[in-house]
Computed example of a mutant assay.
Amino acid sequence: MTELWNWRIDDRVAAAEVRPALAAALGRPVLPLGADPGRLPADAVLCDVWHVPGEFPTVVDCYGVPDGLVELRAVAALARRLGRSCLLRDDTLDATRHLLVATDGTIRPVHLDVADTDDGELLRDQRLCTVTSPGCRGWSQCHRSRWAPDSVIPALAAA
């Protein structure tokens, strides 16, 4: 168990709603981060959920994710179950670039403005990553990604 996942959801969603939806998506127990380690089922995933300001105000951190689970499939299944789009970091080092996973499982690279606040990281002004955007042209980090500008990829095909 070495995986750590970090996602955002495009609305304020309570932990009491996120954890059961994630458990159904993963097919294994999902428990709060403060759960008693002596009582954890062997295949349990620990999940912390909290809220921050901005366009994607619900933050979901998953700890102890067993090897073999595919993050993109998991986040796509969660987006479908919640009926909310989810956001995760992409494979570039660009802090503004993320992958948007829609409720139908479609993945698109997007950019958001990022600002640190006393209440956490604020994401706002979502826009698609496209070759027509000045910051996404030419030699940008966007072109080094597995998710090229203007990509529109079904989640299961991409995983």
Results as ranks from 00 to 15, higher is better:
residue 16 A to D: 15
residue 5 W to G: 04
residue 136 C to E: 09
residue 150 D to S: 12
residue 129 C to Y: 02
residue 12 R to W: 08
residue 61 D to P: 02
residue 108 R to A: 13
residue 92 T to V: 10
residue 38 G to Y: 02
residue 60 V to F: 01
residue 90 D to E: 10
residue 11 D to I: 04
residue 159 A to S: 15
residue 71 E to G: 09
residue 104 D to S: 12
residue 83 G to A: 12
residue 118 D to R: 09
residue 128 L to K: 03
residue 19 R to C: 04
residue 18 V to H: 01
residue 90 D to N: 12
residue 80 R to Y: 05
residue 92 T to A: 10
residue 110 V to R: 00
residue 38 G to R: 09
residue 8 R to E: 13
residue 99 L to N: 03
residue 21 A to T: 04
residue 58 T to K: 03
residue 136 C to R: 01
residue 129 C to W: 00
residue 121 E to K: 05
residue 103 T to Y: 02
residue 130 T to P: 08
residue 87 L to F: 09
residue 18 V to R: 00
residue 101 V to Q: 01
residue 89 R to P: 08
residue 138 G to P: 06
residue 50 W to D: 14
residue 51 H to W: 05
residue 27 G to I: 08
residue 92 T to Y: 01
residue 103 T to C: 14
residue 31 L to A: 09
residue 30 V to C: 08
residue 1 M to L: 12
residue 99 L to D: 03
residue 145 S to Y: 01
residue 143 H to I: 12
residue 10 D to E: 14
residue 12 R to T: 14
residue 58 T to Y: 03
residue 36 D to K: 04
residue 92 T to W: 02
residue 25 A to M: 05
residue 105 G to Y: 01
residue 49 V to W: 00
residue 122 L to D: 12
residue 119 D to I: 09
residue 17 E to L: 09
residue 47 C to S: 06
residue 81 R to S: 14
residue 92 T to Q: 07
residue 158 A to W: 01
residue 52 V to H: 03
residue 40 L to H: 04
residue 129 C to A: 15
residue 67 D to N: 13
residue 111 H to Q: 14
residue 96 T to P: 11
residue 33 L to H: 05
residue 35 A to F: 05
residue 145 S to G: 10
residue 119 D to S: 14
residue 31 L to M: 11
residue 134 P to A: 12
residue 154 P to A: 09
residue 99 L to T: 03
residue 121 E to G: 10
residue 48 D to K: 06
residue 159 A to E: 11
residue 83 G to D: 11
residue 3 E to N: 13
residue 34 G to F: 09
residue 50 W to H: 14
residue 57 P to M: 03
residue 121 E to T: 15
residue 102 A to R: 13
residue 33 L to D: 07
residue 47 C to R: 00
residue 10 D to C: 13
residue 147 W to I: 06
residue 92 T to C: 10
residue 85 S to M: 12
residue 154 P to M: 03
residue 120 G to W: 01
residue 115 A to C: 15
residue 18 V to S: 02
residue 34 G to K: 10
residue 105 G to E: 05
residue 125 D to H: 13
residue 35 A to V: 07
residue 63 Y to T: 05
residue 139 W to D: 15
residue 85 S to K: 06
residue 117 T to F: 07
residue 78 L to H: 02
residue 61 D to V: 04
residue 15 A to M: 11
residue 137 R to A: 15
residue 78 L to M: 08
residue 133 S to T: 13
residue 55 E to F: 04
residue 54 G to A: 05
residue 83 G to Q: 10
residue 24 A to I: 03
residue 81 R to W: 02
residue 38 G to Q: 10
residue 131 V to L: 13
residue 75 V to G: 02
residue 46 L to F: 00
residue 88 L to F: 06
residue 123 L to F: 09
residue 157 A to G: 15
residue 117 T to H: 11
residue 7 W to Y: 11
residue 150 D to Q: 07
residue 23 A to V: 02
residue 40 L to S: 07
residue 59 V to W: 03
residue 8 R to W: 08
residue 101 V to K: 00
residue 138 G to M: 04
residue 42 A to I: 06
residue 159 A to L: 08
